[in-house]
């Protein structure tokens, strides 16, 4: 399948990085955070970039997954694996219930509704203290193990989370290049025309909303096991905004763009640490400049740039011949 070419490249990079830079903090620590963010950005991109339905509450589903796993393993002694599944099931039910009423809204109203949803989930995490540990969070979460292979080092977490990222990217690419993916994009392009082509737009929105929520929940569970600790701060409104920024920065409606956006937004603060007090200012300035000069997003914008340069080169060669 030709659309998977980029995927193989991604696979190769993911394999080579820890070999090329063994024990590097930037690969196995920041890199893992970037991969986790990329999972979230790719899932949000399905909803936002492709189907055109903005969500400012994606961190909420991330939180439900994380807390489901944290609570079930620490308070009820569950094995981590079924806890992941239970977390996804709970998230799926919540997303499914909210999808119909929320996704009937459009534009700013949808943004407001999802914003409210994310904030409410966050408030529940803070307030249901007897379950969630309240604002102090919940610690002592066990780690994953697979047939006796305990995921207890940075490198092992890199392997697990990057593998999940690769599967999520593969699924995302498959969907986009299918009947369902075209239905998503059609919905974005013209809802009335999509309906007239026989696409049940309500059901399609619900499906992609639930799918994005399920992936976010999975990422949340992995995050909980990797950190061994969860607190409501990680799932706040600000993180939802950061996820939206990743998608927009990388390029809407581009799976690789979402990954790139996640990687940049994860690494940039690390690299800007040298500027100390000015870190946030420079961060903001970079975002603004990128949006001014590459409004389609970094990945899509650069893609177009490369294409134009290649075409110009071909043109001049042809002219010379």
């Amino acid at each position: 399948m030709s659309y998977l070419r980029g995927f193989y490249l991604l696979l190769a990079v993911a394999l080579l990085l820890p070999i090329a830079f063994p024990g590097s903090y930037y690969v196995t620590v920041v890199g893992v955070t970037a991969a986790l963010n990329a999972i979230l950005a790719v899932s949000l991109n399905l909803l936002m970039g492709y189907a055109g339905q903005i969500s400012l509450g994606h961190a909420g589903f991330f939180g439900v997954g994380a807390y489901a796993s944290a609570i079930l393993t620490t308070r009820y002694g569950w094995n981590p694996w079924p806890a992941i599944v239970a977390g996804m099931a709970a998230t799926g039910v919540i997303a499914f219930t909210l999808a119909r009423p929320i996704l009937r809204l459009k534009g700013h109203y949808l943004a407001m509704a999802t914003l409210g949803m994310g904030i409410i989930i966050n408030i529940v995490l803070v307030q249901a203290g007897s379950f969630t540990g309240g604002p102090d969070g919940l610690g002592g979460i066990p780690t994953l193990s697979l047939f006796g292979w305990r995921v207890n080092s940075d490198l092992r977490w890199y392997i697990v989370i990057v593998s999940v990222l690769l599967v999520v990217v593969w699924i995302s690419l498959n969907i986009i290049n299918s009947r369902s993916g075209r239905a998503l994009r059609a919905l974005h392009g013209s809802e009335v025309a999509a309906e007239m082509m026989g696409i049940d737009t309500g059901a399609t929105k619900t499906q992609v909303f639930v799918l994005a929520a399920l992936i976010a929940s999975l990422a949340g569970s992995l995050f909980a096991y990797q950190q061994a600790f969860v607190s409501p701060d990680s799932f706040s409104f600000f993180f939802s905004i950061e996820l939206v920024t990743m998608v927009v920065l990388g390029g809407m409606a581009s799976t690789y763009g979402a990954i790139l956006g996640a990687v940049i937004l994860t690494f940039l603060p690390e690299l800007l640490v040298v500027f100390e007090d000015y870190e946030v200012m420079i961060f903001g300035a970079i975002l603004m400049l990128m949006m001014i000069f590459l409004p389609q997003g970094l990945f899509v914008g650069l893609q177009g740039l490369v294409r134009r340069v290649l075409r110009a080169k071909q043109g001049s060669e042809r002219g010379a011949a």
Partner: peptide, 28 residues
Amino acid sequence: QMFFNMSVLDNVKVGAHLRSRTPLWSAA
């Protein structure tokens, strides 16, 4: 009412939506 975010071929493929059945999970 074009899908301006898609190629011509993909636009027309959307037209054929009803003639196939593949659900989301199968496509995934």
